[in-house]
């Protein structure tokens, strides 16, 4: 595989996905360059989560082609190769409630660890310093040994963010990563994500319902409704009317 800087970080070519009788994604064409911070917006059920899951290979599209950094997902045979390219913070966090926080964060390393190291880490957490520095940047360093189920929703969400940060893939996908956080925390977590994207030349694609956060931290905005991309523009061109249209027309359609 030849690596090239000119290749888009993420590219989707006429991707379709159906669930039963409903079309979740219809003819999605998309290209995202390295370093971009892209916001996905759209009403609930519009296909944002399906799109993110498709990009990271958790959902297999019915047709169409997806590539990350120029490599087609269908050609990537090993999960650990994929994990260096793309990682996701899902809406439900996907944490293991019975494990301590540190273990859930270090789970981001499982792709690169050997089996022996993974088992050892359950007893003596490996790379603990790295985990604790990421947790402290998210304001969670005191909770490192706490059982994850004892944490609040907002704290668990930040643990999920910490896990993808320690995994450190080229493309970070985040499904409403700050939905459970208060405004101040939401802003600091968004700031951290966009800073890491810029400093390490990564790519960030996130979904959000907060126009303020999107306009502050994202460089590009993509609107989705009923599985179709409705608009795709630089953040400077967005205005309130476009937002309102995206959300309100949908309610009329449902009546």
């Amino acid at each position: 595989m030849i690596e090239s800087k000119a290749r888009p970080a993420v590219s989707l070519n006429s991707v379709h996905k159906r669930y039963g009788t409903t079309d979740a994604l219809i003819d999605i064409n998309l290209s995202v360059e390295p370093g971009e911070v892209v916001a996905l917006v759209g009403p609930s059920g519009s296909g944002k989560t399906t799109l993110l899951n498709t990009i990271c290979g958790l959902t297999i599209p019915d047709s169409g082609e997806i590539s990350i950094s120029g490599q087609s997902l269908t050609n990537i045979k090993h999960r650990k190769t994929l994990a260096t390219l793309v990682g996701i913070v899902s809406q439900q966090y996907g944490l293991i409630p019975t494990l301590p926080v540190v273990q859930n964060v270090l789970a981001g390393k499982l792709g690169s660890w050997t089996n022996l190291k993974s088992v050892l880490s359950l007893i003596w957490p490996q790379d603990r310093k790295q985990a604790s520095s990421i947790l402290s940047s998210l304001g969670l360093d005191e909770k490192i040994n706490e059982r994850t189920s004892h944490l609040s929703g907002g704290e668990q969400q930040r643990v999920a963010v910490a896990r993808v940060l320690i995994q450190s893939p080229d493309v970070i996908l985040a499904d409403e990563p700050v939905a459970s956080l208060d405004p101040a925390l939401a802003e600091s977590v968004m700031g951290l994500l966009s800073r890491i994207t810029q400093v390490d030349n990564k790519t960030l694609i996130l979904s959000s319902h907060s126009p303020y956060l999107i306009q502050t931290y994202c460089s590009r905005i993509i609107g989705i409704r009923q599985g179709r991309i409705i608009f795709d523009m630089p953040i400077s061109e967005i205005n309130d009317d476009i937002f309102h249209d995206l959300y309100e027309t949908n309610q009329i359609l449902q009546r």
Partner: peptide
């Protein structure tokens, strides 16, 4: 299944998924 999917996306092998996901759960 959500935590198991999340572990898969971190590149964990089936053995690691057992240790970090299935058994603790």
């Amino acid at each position: 299944s959500q935590p198991i999917l999340a572990l898969k996306s971190t590149g964990a092998s089936p053995f690691k998924i057992i240790c970090y996901g299935l058994l603790p759960l």
